[in-house]
Nucleic acid binder design. Structure first.
Lengths: 199, 199, 199, 199
DNA sequence: GATGAATGAGGGTTCATTCAT
DNA sequence: TATGAATGAACCCTCATTCAT
C-alpha cells in the first residue's frame, strides 16, 4: 500500500503480473509466479496489494491510465479533423499488438473477466478510454463530419468492440503478424469512417 | 434412475453449467454447484464429461451449434437482400440478451477465456459463426450492394466484435434493459450498412 | 454369496481378480477393471462377494486351497524320504513362477497386505500351507533324518520366508527367467537340507 | 515458525509417516493423518515431499540407510569369524521387532508393495542391505568356513526372506512377544550356520 | 520493509457400492 | 440373476495468504 515507499518495486510487481497474467491467464496464474518474475518474495506482493484481485485491478488501472495518456498524446500530436483523429486512434489501438504484446493479450482476454468484477466495481478507466472515442465522434457531429442521428455512445462502444476483436486476432494468431497492423487499421478506418459520415 | 445414460441428462448438466458459469464465471464455479443445479450427483458429471474443462468446451460447442442453427433459420426466413439479412443478423445476435441472458453472459465473458484454449484447440464453432457474416458480406460484394474493396473477413470480425461488445453492455447493465435491443440493433445496422455500402 | 448358482461365473471373477490384482496391486486395482476382465457387470461382483476386501479374501483362500491341494498331490506322488519330499516342495513352490506367474506375484506381494487383515481375520489357509512343511520336518525328526533340537514351526516359517523371497525375485526380475527355477530350487534344497540334518 | 525449512521438520514428518503407515498401511493412511501426527499442516508435507508416493520412497530410503548403518556398526563391534557375524546379524535384524516395532511392521508389510515400484525404480537400499549378508557369506567362503558350492547371492536372499518372515511373525503376533527374539535368533542361526558350513 | 516457510480451507476427481430396471 | 448408470463420501493436493524472523 505504501505506494510511496518504493514505487520502483511496485512497478516491478505490476510488470511481472502483466507478463504472467498475459501468458497464463489471471486464474491460472499463481501469485508465487508473479513474485518470482518480479524477483521478490511472495509476501512482498501483499505489502503493495491487498490480494490477488487487488493486484489485477491495480494492474488494469495502471495500464489503462498509461494507454489513455498515450492516446491523448497521439490525438494532440495528430491534430486535424475529427475523422483523421479517429483513424489515428484506430491505428494506435491496434499497434498495442506490436508494441506491447503482453498488454494486448491482457486487455483482450482478461478485461472481460474483470467486467465480471465490474458489477461490484464500476470500471472507470475503461469508460474513460471509451470517452476519448465518444468525444471524437461528438466533435465530428458538431462540425458536421459525422452523422447526427447516431448515438455517439453506441458508436464508440461498437468501435471499441471491433478494435478489441481485431486486436485479439492480431495477438492470438501468432504475435509475428504485427506487420498486418497498418493494413488492418486502414480497413477498419475505411469501414467506420464510411459508416459514420453523412451521405 | 432411468437405465440408459441419457442425452437428456447430458443436456440438464449443460443447462446447469451454463447457468452457473454465467453467474459465477468458469473459474469461480464449482463442479458441485453445477451438479446441484442439475439435480445430479457430483460424480455423474464425470460420466458425461472428462473434466471441468471438457464441460466448458462441450457447453461452448453445444450452444454455438444452437446459435448457428438459429442464425441459419433466421436468415432463411428473412430472405431478401444481403443488407437486409445483415440487419436481421444484428438483431438476432443482440436478442440473445433478452431471450437467453445466461447464454449472452456466457458467450461475452467466457468465450475470450476459451480463446486462450484456442491457441491449442482451434475454435471451429466460432469460425462458423463468423462465416455466416462473412458469407453475407461476400454475397453483397458480388451483387454490388457492398463495397468490393473491403476484406470480408476483417469486416466480419469487426462486426462480430461490435455486436459482442454491445451484447456485453446489454447483459451487464442490468438484464432489465432488454427493451433497448431493437434500438441498439438499428443503430448498429445503420452504422455498418452505411460503412459497407458503396457511395 | 450364492456360491451354488453359477460357480462358473464366480470362478471367472476370481480369475479376473487374480490377473488384475497381480498386475496393479490390490489397492490400485479397480473393481470395474476386475469386472471388465471377467466380462461381467460391476454390480455382478457384489452378487458373489460382499465387497472388494471380501473378494481379496476369497481369492486368497481359493488359490491357497488350490496350492495346498497341489502340494499334497505332489507329496503323495513323490513319496520317499521326508528330505526328498522337502526338496520336492521347494521345487513345487518356485515353479509357481513359471506355471502361474500372476499367482506368484499375487502371493508374494499381496499376501503381506492381507497379513494386515490377519490381525482381525486369522489366516488359516496360510497356516495350512505352513503346516505341510512343518509336518514334513516333524516326520524327519521322528525318523532321525532331521535334527530334533530344532523348533519345527520356526524352521517351517524360515523356509517359507526363504521360498517366498526367492519366488518374489523370480517373479519380479522378468518373468522370463523361469528357467532358473530348477537351479534355484536345488540351491535352496541344499542349503536347508544341510541345515536341518544331524551332523 | 522457525525461518528456515528445517531438516528437523523433515524428520518429524518421516517419523509420523512411519507410525501412521505402520498402523494403517500405506494405502489406508491419509496424508492428513501423517500431518496431524507430525504436528504440521497438511500442506507442509508437500514442501518436503513431492507427493504421498514420494513420502513413502523417502521414508523407505531413510530407514534403510539407518538400518544399514546400524548393521555395519554391529558387524564392526562384533568382529570375529564370518559365522559369528552372521549370527549377530540375524539377532540384529530380529531385534528390530523390540527396538522399533513400527519400523518392523513397515518393512515387513510395506516393503513388498514398494517392490511393485521396484520394477520402475530399482531398489538400491534393499540391495545394499542384502549385500551385507552376501559379503559375509563370501568372506566365509574365502576362509573356508562356508561351503564354496553355494551361490552367495541366493543364500543371502534366502536368509533375508527367512529373517523377514520371522520378523513379521514377531511383529504381528502381538508386539509383546519380543522376549522371544533371542531364542528365534538362535534357532535361525543354528539352521543357517549348519546349512552353509562344509560337512 | 522484506522474506519465504508454514498454514489450512477448499475443490476437482475417483471409485466402491447401490438399486431401479 | 444380471446390469451399469448413478451416487456421494472420501482424499490428495494446490495455492492465496499470514506472520515470525
Amino acid at each position: 500500500m505504501s505506494r510511496e515507499k518504493t514505487p520502483e518495486k511496485r512497478q516491478r510487481i505490476l510488470a511481472a503480473a502483466l507478463k504472467v497474467f498475459a501468458q497464463r491467464g489471471f486464474f491460472n496464474a499463481k501469485v508465487s509466479e508473479v513474485a518470482r518474475e518480479a524477483q521478490v518474495a511472495d509476501g512482498t506482493i501483499y505489502l503493495y496489494f491487498k490480494n490477488k484481485d487487488d493486484l489485477l485491478i491495480n494492474l488494469f488501472e495502471d495500464r489503462m491510465e498509461f494507454l489513455i495518456r498515450r492516446l491523448h498524446e497521439e490525438m494532440e500530436r495528430e491534430g486535424g479533423s475529427a475523422l483523421g483523429r479517429i483513424r489515428r486512434m484506430i491505428l494506435a489501438h491496434l499497434r498495442i499488438a506490436e508494441e506491447w504484446p503482453d498488454l494486448a493479450e491482457f486487455i483482450t482476454v482478461e478485461l472481460r473477466q474483470s467486467a465480471k468484477f465490474v458489477k461490484e466495481y464500476e470500471n472507470p478507466k475503461f469508460m474513460e478510454y471509451l470517452k476519448v472515442l465518444r468525444d471524437l465522434i461528438e466533435e465530428g457531429q458538431r462540425d458536421g463530419s459525422v452523422r447526427a442521428d447516431l448515438d455517439a455512445r453506441a458508436v464508440a462502444r461498437a468501435m471499441f468492440g471491433a478494435l478489441d476483436e481485431q486486436l485479439l486476432a492480431l495477438t492470438l494468431t501468432g504475435r509475428a503478424r504485427a506487420q498486418e497492423v497498418p493494413r488492418a487499421a486502414e480497413q477498419l478506418g475505411d469501414l467506420f469512417c464510411a459508416g459514420i459520415q453523412p451521405r
